[in-house]
Design a protein around this nucleic acid. Structure first.
Lengths: 198, 198, 198, 198
DNA sequence: CTTTAATCGAGACGGTACGTCTGGTCTTGTT
DNA sequence: AACAAGACCAGACGTACCGTCTCGATTAAAG
C-alpha cells in the first residue's frame, strides 16, 4: 500500500512556517505602507526570512503580493445566499465594497499597479481571484434568471461588469466606495435586469 | 501703461523647447517600455535635458507622466455630436476603447499604477482628465434626457459609470476591449436608459 | 581472533571514489579558472558530490586546494641526481620553473593567495610542500659541499632562498619564468657558491 | 593669460575629502582584518562614503587596495644614501623588512593575494610599486659599480632578485623576516657582488 | 555696458533596493 | 555512519535609479 503514497522529493523539505511568515509580512507591508514600502528587503526583514529564500520561491514582487493576498482573504469571499437573488447581489456588492475599503483593497490596488509592468502578476490576479469570483457571481445571476427574478434575456457578463467595474474604478482613483453610493449603483443596474412584471 | 503687462520675472526665461522635449520623451518612454522603463534618467537621456532640470519643474514621475499624457492627447478628446444621443454615446465608448488600445492606453495604465503610491498623481489624473470628461459626457446624457431619448429619471452618474468603468477594468486587467465587446456593453447599459415608448 | 583486526568504525565506510572526484574537480577548477572560479559549489557540481560531503571532509577551501595539489603533483617532484651537483641544482630550478609555468603553478598561486587570509592553508603548504622540498634541496647542496663542488662555508639556507625565491616572486607577479631567465639566475647565484679553485 | 589655465571639466568637481576617506578606510581595513574583512561594503561603512561612489571611482577591490597602499606608504619609500653602497643596500633591505613586518606588509600580501584572480591588480602593483623601486635600487647598485665597490660584471637584475625576493617569499609564507635573518641574507648575496680586492 | 537673477547642462554624491552568488549549516531519506 | 539532495540564513556583490547638491556657462531684463 506504500506505493499509493506521493513520492516525496529528495532533500530537506520546504519549511512551511517560513512560507507563511513571508506571506504574512508581505501582506502587512502592503496594507501598511502601500506599494512604496513593499520591498523584498522589507519583507525579508520583517519576516526574519533570508532574502535569498524569498527569491527562491517567488519570481517577482507581484507573485509575492498576490499569494499573500489570497492567503489572507481566502476566508472572506463567501457569497451570501438568501431567498432573493436581488438581495444577494446587493449584498455581494456591499461586501466587496467593504473589502475594498479595508486592507484587502490596498492590496488589490497594489497588485493592479504592480501588474501594469508585469503581465504575470495580472494573470495571477485574474486566475486566482477575478475569474473564480466571476464564475460564482455568474452562477448567482443565473439562479436569478431561473427563478424568474431576472430577465431571461439578460446579458449576464455585462450585468456583472456594470455592477462591479465601477467599484474598481473608484477604488483605483481614490474616490471611495461608501454604502450609499454602492446601493445607488446596484439600484441602477439591477433595475435594468429585472424580469418584466406579469 | 506698462503695469498692465504680465510681470515677467527677472532672469533667463524658461526654455519651452526643453519642456516639450521632456514631455515628448516621457510620453514615448511610457508608450514603449511601460512603467518599468519610465525613469527620470531615461527621460533625461532621451530628451537630452539635464536631470536636474526635470526635477526643477516636475515634482514626481507621476506629474511628468500626466503632463506628457495631456500634452499628447489633448486633441483626441472631442466628443461626437450627431442627431442621436444614443449613437453619440455608443461612438464615445468606441472612441475611448480605441484610445485605450493605443499608446494613450498604456499611459493611462501607467498613471493609474504610479498613482497607487502617490495620491497627487491620481488627483492630477482626476482633475486633468477624468472629471472634465465626465462633465462633457454628463452634458451629452442630459441632452438625451431633454430630447426625450433617455429616461427622465435616469441616474446619470451611475449610467456613465456602468458604461465606462468596465473599460477601465478590462484595460487594467489586460483583457482587451474590442469593438464588439464595447457594443455589447453599450447595448446592455443603454437599453436600461431609454425613455419608455409612448 | 577477530580482535587483532584494526577496529573499523561502525556505519558506512568513507567512499574513496568520492574523495578522488572531489580532489580532481578542485584541481581542475583551480587550473582552469583560477581563484575566482574555485568555489565549493563549483567543485560539488563538477565532481557530482554533495556540497555537505565536501564540508564534512575539508575544513576550508585552502585545505581542499592543497590536498588536490599534492594529490596531483606528488609524482613530479623527484629531484635530478647526476654527477654534478651544480648541474643538478640548475636542473632543479628549471624543473621548478616548468612546474610554475604549468597547471601546478596556477594552483600554487591560488594556495598562496588563499592562504593570505587563512594561516592553516599556508601551514599546510609549508609542511606539505615547501619544507620537504627544502630538506631535499639542502641535502643536494650539502652533498655538493662534501664533494668539494661548493664552498665549505656556504650558507645553505640563504643560497636556496636566493635560488628559488625569485621564481616565487615572478610567478606571483605575473612576470613569467622562461628558461633563459632561470639560467641567468642560477648562473648568478651558483657563481657565488662555488668552492675556490685550488 | 587665461588660456594657459587647465580647462576644468563641466559638472560638480570631485570631492577630494571623499577620495581620501575611502583610501584611508581601505588601508585600515586591510591592515586590521586582512583580506577577509576587506569588503567594499566595509570600506563604505567605515569611510561614510556611499558604496556607489566607491564603485564609480575604483573598478575593483584590488585597485582600491593598491591606491590606498600607495597613498599611505608614499612617504616611507626613500632609499638611504650614505658613503657606502654596500651599507645602503643592507639598510634598504632592513627598511623593506620593517615595512613588511608592519601594516604595509599585510597590505602587500593582500594585494598579491587579490591579484592572483585579477591581473589588473598585479599590474597596478608592478607599475605603481615594484618597477619604480627596482629602478631606484638598480641606480644604487650601478652607483656601487661605478664607485668600484661592486663587481663591474655584476648582473644587477639578478642581484636585486636574490636580495629582495626571499623577503617576499617569507612574507607570503608567514615565516617572518627579522633583522638578523635579513642581515644573513644580505651578507650572503652581497659577498658575491663585491669587487675583487686589488 | 554692466549687473543681476534666473535657466540649463554636467556630473558628484549619499541612499536604497535590486537580483545574484557563495559560504556554511541544517534536515531529510537512502545506501 | 556516509552520502545526495536541497532548504535555509547570512552577507557581499555590482547595478540602477532616486533625489540633492555644486559647479560653470548661458541668457535676457534692469540698472
Amino acid at each position: 500500500m506504500q506505493s499509493l503514497a506521493i513520492a516525496r522529493p529528495p532533500g530537506r523539505p520546504r519549511c512551511d512556517a517560513t512560507r507563511k511568515a513571508v506571506l504574512a509580512a508581505a501582506y502587512d507591508l502592503l496594507a501598511e505602507g502601500g506599494l512604496s514600502r513593499f520591498t523584498v528587503e522589507g519583507v525579508a526583514a520583517r519576516s526574519g526570512v533570508a532574502r535569498s529564500t524569498i527569491y527562491r520561491w517567488w519570481p517577482s514582487k507581484g507573485a509575492l503580493a498576490m499569494e499573500g493576498f489570497l492567503e489572507a482573504t481566502a476566508a472572506d469571499l463567501a457569497l451570501p445566499a438568501s431567498e432573493s437573488v436581488i438581495a444577494d447581489l446587493q449584498a455581494s456588492l456591499r461586501l466587496f465594497a467593504r473589502l475594498v475599503r479595508g486592507k484587502a483593497g490596498r492590496i488589490i490596488r497594489c497588485i493592479i499597479a504592480e501588474g501594469q509592468g508585469d503581465p504575470e502578476t495580472i494573470d495571477a490576479f485574474l486566475t486566482g481571484f477575478v475569474i473564480p469570483r466571476r464564475a460564482e457571481l455568474r452562477a448567482v445571476v443565473e439562479r436569478g434568471i431561473e427563478r424568474g427574478e431576472l430577465r431571461a434575456d439578460l446579458d449576464v457578463e455585462m450585468a456583472l461588469y456594470s455592477l462591479f467595474a465601477p467599484l474598481y474604478q473608484r477604488m483605483l482613483l481614490n474616490e471611495g466606495v461608501d454604502d450609499d453610493w454602492v446601493d445607488r449603483l446596484s439600484g441602477f443596474v439591477l433595475a435594468g435586469c429585472l424580469a418584466p412584471k406579469r
